[in-house]
Design a binder for these strands. Structure first.
Length: 932
RNA sequence: GCUCAGAUGGUGGAACUGGUAGACACGCAGGACUUAAAAUCCUGUGCCCUCAACAGGCGUGCGGGUUCGAUUCCCGCUCUGAGUACCA
């Protein structure tokens, strides 16, 4: 029988499902291997051909690892809380749970027909109460923890209370809010319960605090920094503004250094690591206190402005100090004479949106407050300004201005006519631009004159600390992550409020199940949707928290749930976690570099600190599959003199002769850029009677690479391709398209080649009459060579994630064996095993025709290099790297024999013209070049 | 601006540690089979000169360098893509 992919694929998919072939056992003598895909958000549009790319790669790897004798965990699930289902609910009133359920069914059907080897018994859904119970549980652990800098790990909050009891706040070194109180043990004992809770909240790893947040009015919610791109929301693209709000936050900043250090221990793509490093944004410097000059200041008492600088060595070059317009001391510092100017400036900056402010980095602006500070190193009196180039959110919201060493300070100084002081002898032309060099010796710099950079920094840090006016400091750009969302379709935060303070519900009361509401919109008083829920009170008495968790909550620990997905009493059993440990291979898109992948590392480190998991890093190796872009096709409609579209369409090559407009045409009715005119008429009935100007009898369409989207008619659905060619062809073709990590446009044009290959492969096992036919002869040398070449090649390719090259190698191998008329059972059996990770259905079928059980744990054939030994005699060499010729030599000769034989060779002698070679270059035992 | 990645035929791409550049596939051209088409199979296909073959010249974004030998290593530049952006 000819290759009947439909029957074969159906048969084996059913077989795998009924026999639970890919169910992973958490108890095995085999070494474990955990292959994970980033689980999808089940959107209404279903899968397009770009989505399965990474899943196919990971499936090939998982199947390969099984053949190699590993106990493989390869699960799949859904990140099923999220905005689109909620937006849909707002429009239609359909409960997001129903939308989600429907979408998941579509996803599952589409995934199943591609033939993945997922262990579906471990499926997770983040919106399932049985799952988010544990997301809430982790939230509770975070609430009950603080970060102890002495032990450099998170600890239970009770150890903090012990410290407060024993020695008050003085001995505590923690990552906490800035406004913590100083108190003695006796004070602590006298605090009321409310006061204690209020104080502890400043230390907890998840905390409630008034902070400036990214507020998106259109979505009616706050967003985390990584959910905002260029001043617009990542989802939906709505404008985002800054707003002060009481918000839940996660103290990820406590882990900044560990998140940074950990990057060196994991095998991730360098760009992702680099993005995380930038996001964490470590800068080493010093914080310095500048005393405010009380002589002229409206401030009555002694006060300081604290600045952060990475160039403390330039402190003698300070000629002004700048505060962010939002800085808390601005109003108090402003003298009556400057009040108007300062108010105007603040009003002006407030008007500027975040976007304007980012775009407009050229214009220098600012206002003098009228007050002065004294430079701690030399007592110099310098002006205090405000300017919007200083950001309230970074460092202390204040900087020292050193025009000779910093270009922004230089521009500011020049614009406002402030002094420029050269501080290093190596600085050039500081009157025309700043010179940020660290070379040379200090001048005009008081007690550091004559020192070099390193010495000056060390000396100053020490001096500042002794004087109590500063110290060395490390700053991180990464802010704590905002955790609350004013949305419905997310995990409820397991917290209620008593006397305005948050308390956790009891652990045994989890999950706090999302309540039903009548509409998925904020309440009339502007509260989040949960405010609509009837009796949404803890014990019918205390108000529950109304915001829900962000999208990244459920995805920050899901790989652990797969280890023990059905467990009701723990997020995963200790044994399961101890066995599976971490993810060995994680495949997904790079768009999660600063979101999911950072938050996951944070939660993982936290769970490790508490002893719930064993590894410091969750994902040992990460691969980013490239994005598949759309490849749009166009037809060209001729327009008349008035610019109106006519009823004539002109082929791509001839469109220059006319005035035309390009129209998107559904890529599914175009083959190799040739338009199917009949289908086109059905697609666009208004062109039913159109005239087509053809070239070479065909209508050729134009091409452009764009994002894959419905509106551009360039979405290619895997269902259609599977219907046409089968899943095995789709799987191999997606791999064949190019390197996994590279982004590329989808192009169905080449798929025929892969389909032809699978038919050829099928034919290898059949005779002319399409009857299954193999024999038990002894394999020939040539057959074994072809086989072992592919065994080695595929093994090497998979290990270095070069799946596209193995597809080519399969084609070569099958062509070779076809030419050799190979029907040998041993050879063909091994070939089936080698191909099976790529094309599992056809391989299972042939495997069973060969009389075997089933494939998944068959050992991968052992490569024997003996079969690859070269036996050709002629191979090319060059003389002086230039002229090339073929040399007839036996490769079994050793080097010295080859040497002689070469010189004796007639052709070589002709080229040597009597000269003796200076050098003969050998590569892998072969001569490649003779240098005369 | 900064950081990172990349540039190879008509197209997607291969060449793994410097060793016959263009594997494999698509497309195209020609041929076989067929009444015909589809399917299938065979042949050719980097560019230039040449009727063609032999032979030759040029070729991995551009300009240099190292080397017997460079798509691969080094220096400088151009372009493309991604990320990031007043971070003190």
């Amino acid at each position: 029988m000819d290759y009947q992919f439909k029957e074969i694929e159906q048969k084996w998919q059913q077989y795998w499902a009924t026999n639970q072939t890919f169910k992973a056992d958490s108890n095995s003598d085999k070494p474990k291997y955990y292959v994970l895909d980033m689980f999808p958000y089940p959107s209404g549009a279903g899968l397009h051909v770009g989505h399965p790319l990474g899943y196919i790669a990971s499936d090939i790897f998982a199947r390969y690892k099984r053949l190699k004798g590993f106990n493989v965990l390869h699960p799949m699930g859904y990140d099923s809380f999220g905005l689109p289902a909620e937006q849909y609910a707002i429009q239609t009133g359909q409960h997001p749970a129903i939308t989600t359920e429907t979408n998941i069914a579509t996803y599952r059907r589409q995934l199943d027909q591609i033939g993945f080897s997922f262990d579906w018994s471990r499926e997770v859904r983040t919106s399932d109460p049985g799952y988010y119970k544990w997301t809430q549980w982790i939230f509770m652990q975070l609430f009950n923890s603080w970060y102890n800098l002495e032990t450099d790990r998170a600890e239970d909050i009770t150890t903090l209370v012990e410290k407060f009891n024993a020695s008050g706040s003085a001995e505590v070194k923690a990552v906490c809010d800035e406004d913590t109180r100083s108190f003695l043990p006796s004070d602590w004992a006298n605090f009321s319960d409310e006061e204690k809770q209020e104080e502890l909240l400043k230390y907890r790893l998840t905390y409630l605090k008034e902070s400036t947040v990214n507020w998106c009015p259109a979505l009616g919610t706050v967003l985390a920094n990584d959910e905002v791109k260029d001043g617009f929301s990542e989802r939906g693209g709505f404008p985002v503004e800054q707003k002060k709000m009481m918000q839940w936050s996660m103290r990820i900043s406590a882990y900044a250094e560990r998140l940074l250090q950990g990057l060196d221990t994991i095998d991730w793509p360098e760009p992702v690591k680099e993005m995380q490093r930038n996001w964490i944004g470590k800068s080493v410097g010093a914080s310095v206190k500048f005393k405010i000059d009380t002589e002229n200041s409206p401030l009555p008492t002694e006060n300081y402005i604290e600045v952060f600088t990475t160039r403390v060595d330039t402190i003698f070059g300070v000629s002004f100090v700048v505060l962010a317009p939002e800085h808390e001391l601005v109003q108090q510092l402003t003298t009556p004479a400057q009040q108007q100017i300062v108010d105007d400036y603040i009003a002006q900056t407030k008007k500027k949106s975040e976007l304007d402010r980012m775009a407009d980095t050229k214009t220098v602006s600012g206002a003098f407050t009228g007050s002065y500070v004294l430079n701690p190193v030399n007592g110099e009196k310098v002006q205090i300004w405000i300017a919007d180039y200083v950001l309230a959110g970074y460092g202390t919201g204040a900087v020292m201005g050193v025009p000779s060493g910093d270009q922004r300070d230089w521009l500011f100084a020049t614009h406002f006519n402030l002094p420029i002081i050269q501080i290093l002898d190596a600085q050039q032309d500081v009157e025309t631009q700043a010179d940020a060099t660290k070379e040379g010796k200090y001048i005009n710099s008081g007690f550091i004159n004559g020192l070099n950079y390193a010495a000056a920094v060390a000396f100053l840090n020490n001096w500042l600390e002794e004087q109590g006016v500063g110290k060395a400091k490390i700053n991180y750009r990464m802010r704590d992550a905002i955790f609350g969302r004013q949305r419905y379709w997310g995990e409820p935060i397991p917290v209620y409020f008593k006397d305005g303070l948050p308390y956790l519900v009891k652990e045994e009361e989890l999950p706090v199940v999302l309540p039903e509401i009548d509409k998925y919109l904020p309440t009339e008083s502007g509260e989040p949707p949960l405010g609509r829920a009837a009796d949404w009170k803890y014990n019918g008495e205390y108000e529950y928290e109304l915001s829900t968790m962000p999208g990244w909550a459920g995805s920050s620990w899901y790989w652990y749930r797969y280890m023990d997905a059905q467990n009701d009493s723990e997020f995963a059993s200790k044994e399961a976690v101890a066995y599976w440990k971490d993810v060995d291979l994680y495949i997904g898109g790079s768009e999660h570099a600063t979101g999911h992948l950072l938050y996951s590392r944070f939660w993982n480190k936290f769970l490790k600190d508490l002893g719930y998991v064993t590894e410091e890093e969750p994902f040992k190796k990460l691969i980013n599959q490239g994005m598949i872009q759309g490849r749009s096709n166009f037809v060209y409609r001729v327009v008349d003199a008035e610019g109106r579209g006519t009823n004539t369409l002109v082929s791509y090559g001839l469109r220059k002769d006319y005035k035309t407009i390009a129209l998107h045409v559904d890529v599914n009715i175009v083959e190799n850029d040739i338009l199917n005119i009949e289908k086109f008429k059905a697609f666009r009935p208004e062109f039913e009677n159109a005239e087509f100007i053809l070239e070479g009898g065909k209508y050729i369409c134009g091409v452009e690479v764009e994002k894959m989207s419905k509106s551009k008619f360039n979405v290619v659905n895997p269902d259609v391709l599977i219907e046409h060619y089968g899943a095995d062809t789709l799987r191999m073709y997606e791999m064949f398209l190019g390197p996994l990590e590279q982004s590329k446009p989808w192009n169905t044009n080449g798929i025929e080649g892969v389909f032809k290959f699978l038919r050829k492969f099928w034919r290898l096992f059949h005779n002319e009459e399409w009857q299954f036919h193999v024999n038990d002869s002894v394999p020939t040398k040539a057959e074994l060579k072809a086989l072992h070449k592919i065994i080695k090649k595929v093994q090497d390719d998979i290990e270095r994630f070069s799946f596209n090259t193995s597809v080519s190698s399969f084609m070569i191998a099958v062509n070779e064996l076809t030419d050799l008329k190979c029907k040998n059972r041993q050879v063909l059996e091994d070939l089936v095993v080698v191909l099976s990770p790529y094309a599992p259905h056809i391989c299972e079928e042939l495997w069973s025709l060969l009389g075997n059980e089933h494939l998944s744990t068959t050992p991968y054939p052992t490569f024997n290099p003996a079969y690859l030994e070269e036996n050709e005699f002629a191979y090319p060499i060059s003389i002086n790297g230039k002229m090339k010729m073929n040399l007839n030599l036996s490769l079994s000769l050793d080097e010295s024999q080859v040497h002689e034989a070469v010189l004796a060779d007639e052709q070589v002698q002709k080229h040597l013209e009597g000269k003796t070679p200076k050098k003969i270059i050998f590569v892998k035992g072969k001569i490649v070049n003779i240098v005369i």
